[in-house]
């Protein structure tokens, strides 16, 4: 057995199989979507992306993703800090629960929000009485996005907080700094790269989110229709070129963010 496997042909075969798999599965589809969007020419591409509904869906996606990311920066930093610095009952359970949105199907996440906040639910009725509409409106989309991107920032900051040298803080206290000052002047600058790379990952995930949003958004064109749902609609109505055109806008944006995240992380590693 070993003698057979030692033969050069085997390793060559393994290598080419794996490389081929890699290229066919990842690289080819991405090239495919870029070529398809220009398959009917430049004009068709412009037409597809300048469709007002397409535009509005992209702008809406960007706006809501940004809001969701900002919310996550605040609560993510707080949660990471509390889980790292304080010892209290239930800490380990909460720490494990952080990953729940990763483990849970996003469609189920959407269903949860729908059940909790939808019409006929306790919160839904209560909000409706106050004149606030949640489900099938923008707030529900933001909540869905916050839910699915919840772990990113926490998981990005936690390792940095763990590595943080306590003596730096202690030095600041000895120099007479208050707790708040120490947090903003000593700790926050250190965790900032983590916050940023976590936030960018969360943002790109929010841009891409489909499952959780499609169930709660109502998907009213021009109002609550986000980009990924718009693309889905175009595919359903048999307009793959239009879907591809909007896709590459979203894709290019995501790749840009991914590249930025890599840069931030590389700079951090270089330090």
């Amino acid at each position: 057995m070993n003698d057979i496997l030692r033969h050069k042909g085997w390793s060559w075969g393994f290598r080419s199989t794996v490389m081929l798999y890699f290229i066919v599965l990842i690289a080819l589809p991405i090239i495919g979507v870029y070529t398809k969007s220009f398959s009917l020419g430049w004009n068709a591409f412009i037409e597809s992306v300048s469709d007002p509904l397409a535009w509005k869906s992209i702008v809406l996606t960007l706006k809501l993703s940004l809001i969701a990311t900002l919310i996550n920066i605040v609560i993510g930093t707080m949660v990471a800090w509390v889980l790292n610095r304080y010892r209290f009952i239930g800490r380990t359970i909460l720490n494990s629960l952080v990953d729940l949105p990763f483990a849970l199907p996003t469609a189920v996440g959407g269903l949860m929000i729908l059940l909790l906040l939808g019409p006929n639910s306790l919160v839904g009725n209560w909000a409706a009485a106050l004149g606030i509409e949640i489900v099938f409106h923008e707030p529900a989309i933001v909540i869905a996005m916050v839910f699915v991107t919840f772990p990113f920032i926490i998981r990005a900051i936690q390792p940095i907080l763990e590595e943080l040298d306590k003596s730096e803080e202690e030095a600041a206290y000895l120099l007479g700094a208050s707790k708040g000052l120490v947090f903003f002047k000593v700790i926050f600058p250190v965790i900032l790269p983590g916050v940023l790379s976590g936030a960018m990952l969360a943002f790109s995930r929010a841009l891409a989110e489909f499952g959780a949003v499609v169930l709660v958004a109502g998907n009213i064109p021009g109002k609550t229709l986000i980009a990924s749902v718009y693309i889905f609609g175009e595919v359903e109505s048999d307009n793959p070129q239009g879907a591809a055109a909007v896709s590459i806008l979203l894709l290019t944006l995501s790749f840009l963010i991914l590249w930025l995240v890599n840069r931030v992380q590389m700079r951090r590693n270089a330090k």
Binding site: K36, S204, A208
Partner: peptide
């Protein structure tokens, strides 16, 4: 190069991921 390509599916919306396969193998 390969190393950076590995991450691409993270930043691709699943809907677009599905669309890609339809576009190539539909």
């Amino acid at each position: 190069l390969l190393n950076s390509i590995v991450d691409l599916p993270f930043s691709v919306s699943p809907v677009i991921g599905g669309l890609m396969i339809v576009l190539i193998l539909g």
